[in-house]
Amino acid sequence: MAETTPLWAVAVLPFVLVLVALGTAHFDALLAADPAANPGREVLRLLVQQRRRTNAADELLTRLGVVLLPVAAVLAAVVLPLGFRSVSDLADGIVWFNAMEALAWAAVWLAGWGPNSTLSLIGGYRFLAQGLAYELPHMLAITTAALGAESLRVGDVVDAQSGLWFAVWMPAAFVIYLLSAMGMAFWGPFDQPVGRDVAGGAAAELSGVDRIVFLGGRWLLFVVAAAVSVPLFLGGGHGPLLPGWAWTLLKTAAVLALLVWVRRRVPGVRMERYVELAWVVLTPLAILQALVVALVVLNR
């Protein structure tokens, strides 16, 4: 059972997330061997930039969408345990994570719609189509993990994996989760909503701080989504020798590294092809996985 967490953890959490996100972005730039992709310098460059507003834009909606993304990402992370402690181990933590992550739908669409620009509009709508594709297999995957522990509390899910990691006996759910982690953060092969072919899509018209907040929020969401796979499928802080928090960090780093590597190896996935795969292959597969887990739960 998770121990109580001091309140100052609340203040630390956002900084840790930002640091991990910066580190991941650095690693990504390193792998691309592209000196132009340095995240720190990019932030500074955008900080001195003037903000801009497109002709007849809906300023309120744009701003709301931009700001919502990092807020949702950080709020989702309250249930994320470092070792065996999270900022708040909510009784329905998995549902909370799901709810916060789904706010990205609204965020990206609003940011895409607001600027009154064709390309950003296309980007925003692309994310809705993407959501329809990744979300259902994703929800089935996280419920499968909850089913394995018979609890919606993330701490209980971690405890249930003191012996065998869920990733071992629910491999399909784990792989589906990783796919959807990239999908929900519209990152890597799933970056079509902010794709280069639409000149940045939902982010095409954002400059200055707006751009930092939106694209930074996307990195945060990506880090949080990837990190949640550790307590749900990779045994959280469980592991020999090292303390729990070290294991959590190690495993999170490994998952992030894997996903960053995948991004280099795979072309962008367009939803008009992926939706079919998601519904005809991934959804039945996830349901089958849930059935297997349910049978195991019944017989123990």
């Binding site: 592209d34 000196p35 132009a36 992709a37 340095n38 990019e42 955008l46 930039q49 801009r52 390309l119 280069r196 000149a199 940045g200 982010a203 095409a204 018209e205 954002l206 400059s207 751009r211």
Partner: peptide, 10 residues
């Protein structure tokens, strides 16, 4: 190492 950006905004 100068980034080649995709839109005027950035």
């Amino acid at each position: 190492g100068w980034p080649q950006v995709g839109s005027p905004a950035s």
